[in-house]
Amino acid sequence: MSGHSVEDIKKSVKVYIGVFASLAVLTVVTVAASYLDLGSGEAFFLAMIIASVKGTLVAGYFMHLFTERTTILAVLGLTFFFLLTIMFLPYIAFTDQAGV
C-alpha cells in the first residue's frame, strides 16, 4: 500500500471507522452466538466463521491486503496452505487411530 494521495487517505479514514464499527458489532454477535443451543461442532464452526469475517476485515482493510502487491499475497498464500496442513494434522491423527 504505497503511493497514496491525500484524498485517498482521507476517504480511507471513513472505511477504517466503518470496519471498526463492524468489528465491534461482530464481537457482540460472537458472544451472543455462544449462548445459542448448538452442538459442539456447530458452535465451533459458527464461531470460526464469525472470527474469519472479522479477521478478513482486519487483514483486508487495516493491513491493506485487498490492495497489496502480488509478492506479499503469494507469500501469504503459501503460508495459508501450510497453516491448513497443520490444522488438518489432528484430524488425520484421530481418523488414523480410529482405524478409518
Binding site: 464481537t27 460472537t30 458472544v31 452466538a33 455462544s34 459442539s40 458452535a43 465451533f44 464461531a47 470460526m48 464469525i50 472470527a51
Partner: peptide, 8 residues
C-alpha cells in the same frame, strides 16, 4: 483466541 478459549 477469544472465541476458541472463552466461548466454546
Amino acid at each position: 483466541l477469544f472465541p476458541v478459549l472463552y466461548l466454546l
